[in-house]
C-alpha cells in the first residue's frame, strides 16, 4: 500500500534498486493497487510502513540471497522476524531487523537508518548472525547488510 503513495500502479513495475554487500541490483517490483479494504485495514501509517517494509524486504532477500521468511516469534517487547537460507535446516535461522522509510528515503537517510539497525542487531543475541534491511518507499531503494558474529 505504501508504494501506492508515491508510484503509479503497475504496469509498468516499479524499478527498485537493491544494494547488498557492495553489490547493486535493479529489479522490477510488481504490486497490485490496494483495495478499499486494504486501505482501511492499514489506516495507521506507522504500521502500514512497518508491514510494507517487511513485505518488500522479504521479497528482496529471497530474490538476491534466496533467503525465505519464516515468520515471527515473540519477545517481551514485541516480535522478531526470522529468515532462513532456502533448503537449510531450521537451526540455521537468522533474525532480521527491518525498517521502512516512506518520504525522506534518500540514500543518506537509508544508510543512517541501516547503521542504527546494525547497531540494534549487535545488541541482540551474540550467538546468531543477523540481517538488517532498510526499505525506502519513495525512492524505491533497498539496503541490505548481513552481520556475522
Amino acid at each position: 500500500m505504501v508504494l501506492s503513495w508515491f508510484h503509479v500502479v503497475p504496469p509498468p513495475a516499479t524499478i527498485t534498486r537493491i544494494r547488498s554487500e557492495g553489490k547493486q541490483f535493479a529489479v522490477d517490483l510488481a504490486w497490485k493497487e490496494p483495495t478499499l479494504q486494504v486501505r482501511l485495514a492499514h489506516g495507521n501509517d506507522t504500521d502500514a510502513i512497518e508491514y510494507g517494509a517487511y513485505a518488500v524486504a522479504g521479497l528482496c532477500l529471497h530474490h538476491v540471497h534466496r533467503w525465505k521468511l519464516l515468520g515471527r516469534t515473540q519477545t517481551a517487547s514485541g516480535a522478531d522476524f526470522f529468515i532462513i537460507p532456502e533448503g537449510a535446516p531450521a537451526e540455521e535461522f537468522v533474525r532480521i531487523e527491518v525498517s521502512g522509510i516512506a518520504k525522506n528515503s534518500g540514500v543518506t537517510e537509508l544508510e543512517r537508518r541501516l547503521r542504527t539497525k546494525i547497531k540494534q542487531l549487535a545488541h541482540g543475541d551474540l550467538a546468531r548472525p543477523g540481517v538488517a534491511v532498510v526499505v525506502g518507499f519513495k525512492t524505491a531503494h533497498v539496503l541490505i547488510s548481513e552481520i556475522q558474529k
Binding site: 516469534t73 515473540q74 519477545t75 517481551a76 531450521a90 537451526e91 535461522f93 550467538a127
Partner: peptide, 19 residues
C-alpha cells in the same frame, strides 16, 4: 538437538503467556 529453534520458540511461548 535443535537448541536454537527450541530456545526461540520457548521464549516466544513464555512471552505470549506474559502478554
Amino acid at each position: 538437538e535443535s537448541p536454537r529453534v527450541r530456545s526461540v520458540l520457548a521464549i516466544s511461548a513464555v512471552a505470549l503467556w506474559y502478554k
